[in-house]
Design a protein around this nucleic acid. Structure first.
Lengths: 214, 214
DNA sequence: AAAGCATAAATTGTCGACAATTTATGCTTT
DNA sequence: AAAGCATAAATTGTCGACAATTTATGCTTT
């Protein structure tokens, strides 16, 4: 979905953001009638929005009983990162062969701009910057399934964990180096290495988070 | 969804099977009113079923225009196998550490029964047997996201390709050896090797299919 | 005759109402 | 007083109707 068109699109996004940002509590029940008045749309629209959230693994629904926001747990975060490692590793592998020279150039430029910011002492990098970097590589894979699984499915959940467990992108400087090496591997069209480096990158990130949680 | 409960559940499954088995043509338009009469349910139920099929990547929907069954293409099949390689590789890795001894025993027994069948000259193996083998390893990963992505998402699409491009599981005997090696790696709790072997297994399978297509 | 426009037909999107199911309430029985 | 049951209330599921949008039709203009 590039642009929200229908009322259901907009409600889906509004509801999703309210959940991801924690304005609707994790684990809480989603009452259709309640949400219907809250977002000023019919129950049919709410139901469609909830169905889509279920596809994203953000809510769980039981027939004839209703939907609940998923509960966050350390175990859940670990499982999420395992999937990320797998999928983004493959994305990096494919990106190394499928990205155009132009796209790689742009990626290098993005990385350079991050370097300037990090050197300038700004911490902006960790948030949007990291996401942006990963986005480009995922898109660069040119694999439709990979792209939609990560963007529609995994990434909002990752964001939900980030926001609610309050882990604002750690490891700024080391992550920059890792990014640099990944870009270098892609530049060399070394698919094998690009995958390996991306997997390590995500694994380190997972370990870093695990340490914070315990 | 373990058991279909609501009318929407049943319609979703009926519609999905009709598409996967080719009774509804790939690439064709899905008219809500038409399907409504065909399956003898209201349009609301049809719409919910179509929405779920969209989540499975079996249909594509455009706002205010309607839904179409996805078109099958060699490129699409390749992309699908890339995702399978990635996810099932990780599943095998996780299974090597997370499966119980009992589960591994059962898996070995399953493999033995396949061996007997192959030796007996039956070709039953290739269909349900292969699927069953992969199912167990995926479940053995104990990773919720991995399981649902593969079972709800990827596998029906794979089946759709198998049925419609008429590729009834090739490579029977060689695949058996590959399965055996994977089980051995899991038995040894060698996660690294289990992943590598599973990835190779799926890669070979992809190559074999590619050869048939061209 | 081809292109463009206005109107009609058909299709999807949204709504409120009723049905089916689950959950809460309060009574009865022991 | 606790457990079990019947009934009431609330919630989800399904339906048909209307609104909004897209697509098809046929006329007008050049």
């Amino acid at each position: 979905m590039n642009q929200p068109i229908t009322s259901a699109d907009k409600t889906f996004i509004a509801l999703r953001d309210d959940i991801v940002e924690g304005r609707i509590q994790a684990g809480s029940k989603l009452s259709e009638t309640e949400l219907s008045t809250k977002y000023a749309v019919s129950r049919a629209v709410i139901r469609e929005a909830i169905n889509r959230l279920e596809s994203c693994h953000i809510v769980e629904r039981k027939a004839n009983v209703g939907a609940r926001v998923v509960a966050l747990s350390p175990q859940g975060l670990i499982e999420l990162y395992q999937v990320r490692e797998s999928l983004e590793g493959m994305a990096a592998r494919l990106a190394a062969t499928n990205m155009t020279d132009q796209e790689i150039d742009d990626l290098s430029a993005l990385l350079q701009s991050h370097f300037d910011e990090v050197k300038g002492g700004e911490s902006y990098y960790q948030e949007a910057g990291d996401v942006d970097f990963h986005y480009r590589i995922i898109l660069g894979s040119k694999n439709k399934h990979l792209i939609s699984m990560l963007f529609d499915g995994i990434y909002h959940l990752v964001r939900m964990y980030r926001v609610q467990l309050g882990m604002a992108g750690p490891r700024v400087t080391t992550a920059y180096d890792e990014h640099k090496h990944i870009v270098q591997a892609i530049l060399n069209r070394d698919a094998e290495l690009a995958e390996m480096l991306m997997r390590r990158h995500i694994l380190y990130s997972k370990n870093s988070i695990e340490r914070k949680l315990s």
